[in-house]
Amino acid sequence: MTSMDTAHPIVPLRILLVEDDDDHAELTAVALESHDDRHQAIRAHDGAEALDVLYQRGDHAGAPRPDLILLDLNLPRVGGLEVLAAVKQDESLREIPIVVLTTSDAESDRVRAYRYHANSYLVKPVDFPKFESMIHELGNYWARWNHRP
């Protein structure tokens, strides 16, 4: 899907998608693509891999710097909150906006996420059209309206 608003065009995003569940990753990717097929998603299967991407280590030595991070919380090995904390403590990475995208609507997760300076906290709706709609609005916000640093 492409935007018709020429005054505020969509600027395609490089998105780091940190998600251990392949199905969720695919659904998110599908939703992003339907928003703007120019978006570029980089997949990390767990927190450790996400940090490798961000620090361009190992298999991700040449990985580009993402414009946005979509971060699941419940991840094997290094958890989502640990990734969040690591990024926001790093001078070179903290400007990258992080949107927590999770199935958890537990208050404790929400509170902790913001404590570690998450930029946004989104709960995946069970209803797919709503999920897709949420991803589109997310895309509009960060790709159309938001002015990046």
Partner: peptide, 21 residues
């Protein structure tokens, strides 16, 4: 309860998502 709701919701999201597709 948290983990159950999270982990049960997770496949549900997948199911509804792919059924939508």
């Amino acid at each position: 309860a948290y983990t159950v709701s999270h982990d049960l919701k997770s496949p549900l999201v997948t199911i509804t998502g792919f059924l939508g597709l």
